[in-house]
Amino acid sequence: MDKQVIVSISREFCSGGHQIGEAVAKALGMGFCDRNMLDEIAQRKNIRIEYLEKYDEKPRNLLLSRRVGAFSNSIEDIIAEMQFEYLRDRAASGESFVVVGRCADSVLRGRKCLIPVFVMGDEEDKIAEACRRYNISREEAAAKMRRHDRARKQYHNRYSEGKWGDSRCYDLCINSSRLGIEQTAVLLTEYIRQRAARF
């Protein structure tokens, strides 16, 4: 990519958003940013990675946390802010990259090079994917899916002005069940190419 492009992918649990993001990054020769940013943050701030992983993309506990001005006792809040700072720094460096989750659509909002995308999927497909990925029963997969999506929604809405999954907050909302993960990635790659040409 000649010009800087940042693609933020918000996704439903087991909708394939992560794989689509990886495929797009690979196809366009861009950096890919997901949990791996925790390694860099841990190194930069000299923090044990387990701490970061434990609270990554988790909503804070409402009753156990409190905010005083810009300060919060919630570890979830502080780790989220560390990730947002990392994303802002990376975006400011001029690098093109794909980022999955971490409220990137909201954190980097206002940048012309940002293309926010939301990936969803049909419930049955997502449950089937969860059963296959975690080797669990259908009921367990459905419960896990609901739990994760609720947590992602809470996490996103805590730090963002727009609501998670609200089409007005994204340039593109796509159901990966329609074309499958591979073809969705191909379609998205082409969309990003065309968008980048207009930057």
Partner: peptide, 20 residues
């Protein structure tokens, strides 16, 4: 940790520096 403002600020300063 949430009982007083000083607690929140102290814990936040510590956490921002990697001491959770």
């Amino acid at each position: 940790p949430i009982g007083a403002s000083a607690n929140v600020v102290g814990l936040s300063v510590a956490a921002k520096n990697g001491h959770f």
